[in-house]
Design a protein around this nucleic acid. Sequence first.
DNA 1: AGCTATACATAGACGTGATATGTATAGAGA
DNA 2: TCTCTATACATATCACGTCTATGTATAGCT
Lengths: 115, 115
Amino acid sequence: MDEPRSQILAGTLDLLILKTLSAGTFHGYGIALHIKKLSRDALRVEEGSLYPALQRMQMKGWVSSAWKESPTGRQARYYKITAAGRKQLGFESSEFQSSVAATMLVLKGPRGVES
Amino acid sequence: MDEPRSQILAGTLDLLILKTLSAGTFHGYGIALHIKKLSRDALRVEEGSLYPALQRMQMKGWVSSAWKESPTGRQARYYKITAAGRKQLGFESSEFQSSVAATMLVLKGPRGVES
DNA sequence: AGCTATACATAGACGTGATATGTATAGAGA
DNA sequence: TCTCTATACATATCACGTCTATGTATAGCT
């Protein structure tokens, strides 16, 4: 009753988190839900990947965090993207898209490539 | 004369190799050149990644290999995709494309998703 | 009272790709 | 002839990031 499979593409977790936070502040659990929802359940972010990633990103200065009360009345750590984070988002986003494009070129094979 | 950067997307090396071998037999060096060429120099496969990957894939039964003489007169180990390899290629290829599609959904943000 | 969803966090395992290094040969150019 | 470069294979070591498993705790519902 639970296997939707489909892990995140290795190396794209930071990108997904940064993109999520570029739309507003979220706590960890909320980030996971947001990615799951936007990807229509295709991508599931595991807690064991998410929290270490958030810590790494905070150390790199891409996100900042603060404890706040969530709508449900519980304390939660809310994350916010920084200016450096937005810069990183732009960088990783274009890197990702060109890598995907290059990979697709190989998967399509040689066609319409004549010099 | 050699900096084209841009590493391979993590997790796609096997896919790139299988796709290459689905077009014919190649030796290791030739596989690297083929991927580099088809990707228009965007993807560079390092030897230290390639040969271990080929060994892993051979152990899994996705490729087979044999020593042959290359056109340049040197001995080289030529790799060939197996039936299991073609099956794996199909699997990894569709997995990759749906993962990319899911990631793109997140990167595009919520649009045209009503209902 | 107990279950589930929410919420954070860490430890350890694992896969995989990069770096660095080593071998060897053919061919080109000095 | 000698040396350099491209070709060709291979390994050891490392770094990195993600997953699994586990642990804590609280709010709300039944």
